[in-house]
């Protein structure tokens, strides 16, 4: 079966395994290089581990446990909203919750992670002051904001904690003149929670920065989902995605911000996101 059925983003990558002995004895005083060392250059898979009877050797067994522990902790970590507020100095930050009251419910009820808890939409509407009220400039929006960012914990709050603020700053600096709504931090959130949030705020685009499902050692991979005219009921085919933001191994903040800004400008020109908007779309200039 290809592709896990979750919308908080697919995990990616894996660590190099703990290696077996790097050399093998042949004759006394002569050692040859382990062929696995060479083979291991071609794959991150845990090959050539060696055996303790029929089992993994202790160090390999514990390496597997540690990688799983890191992934589990990444899934179950709580997003530190105050720390994000601090990292986003200069941006107003609003915190909203999905209808999933806790992590266990969130993991079992993806539908609840896609809708706002009661009262949150109204709170957003009153807290996010539209652009025209401030008299500020807007590139595309005739009312409300050009762009809203939602930092969604998803399946890896750790990824959001580590990378989201930097990606957001890189994107904003690549989009001069765009009016940006107060940043919304959403907890127990799936990608589609960006739709009711963007709708309540009145944003032309919503960008959801979400923690992707952790793989065994890529526990902090961030995904970016871009939706034009967000409203409840948007389909996944109406979004664009940039995945595996995770410097230094994955995409850098600058590259992610540039890619996102390019997609946003092209999406504005075409008036859409999703399958009709290609990743390699031409840049419309600064």
């Amino acid at each position: 079966m290809s592709g896990a059925a979750d919308d908080a983003g697919a995990g990616a990558g894996a660590s190099a395994p703990a290696s077996a002995a790097s050399t093998e004895p042949t004759e006394p005083g002569l050692r040859v290089v382990d062929p696995w060392l060479e083979l291991r250059r071609f794959t991150p898979a845990r090959i050539g581990l060696g055996r303790a009877g029929d089992a993994l050797a202790t160090k390999d067994q514990l390496a597997l446990r540690l990688a799983h522990a890191q992934a589990r902790d990444a899934v179950h970590a709580a997003l530190d909203v105050d720390a994000i507020r601090g990292a986003l100095d200069g941006h107003e930050v609003l915190h909203v919750r999905s209808a999933a009251p806790d992590r266990a419910t969130y993991l079992q009820r993806p539908d609840l992670g896609r809708v706002l808890a009661e009262g949150e939409a109204a709170r957003l509407r009153s807290a996010a002051v539209p652009v025209e009220a401030k008299g500020g400039p807007a590139v595309g929006a005739t009312s409300g904001f050009d762009l809203a960012f939602v930092l969604a914990d998803g399946l890896s709050p750790v990824a959001v904690q580590e990378h989201a603020a930097s990606v957001l700053r890189a994107t904003v600096s690549a989009l001069p003149g765009w009016s940006v709504a107060p940043v919304v931090v959403a907890t127990q959130a799936r990608v589609a929670l960006g739709d009711p949030i963007g709708e309540a705020i009145g944003a032309r685009f919503v960008v959801v920065l979400v923690g992707e499902r952790p793989g065994l050692s890529a526990a902090d991979s961030l995904g970016l989902y871009l939706t034009y005219e967000p409203r409840t009921g948007r389909r996944d085919s109406e979004r664009n995605c940039i995945s595996n933001v995770r410097p230094p191994v994955g995409l850098s903040y600058e590259a992610a911000g540039h890619k996102l800004a390019t997609l946003l400008r092209e999406g504005l020109r075409l008036g859409l996101t999703g399958v009709g908007l290609k990743d390699e779309g031409p840049s419309l200039g600064a």
Binding site: A4, A45, H68
Partner: peptide
């Protein structure tokens, strides 16, 4: 899969070692 870790699909399954175990 090698060492229970599927590095493409991002999940864990049984390992080559487990084949020796059931045997």
């Amino acid at each position: 899969v090698p060492g229970s870790d599927d590095v493409m699909l991002g999940y864990q399954s049984a390992s080559y070692h487990d084949a020796l175990y059931v045997r």
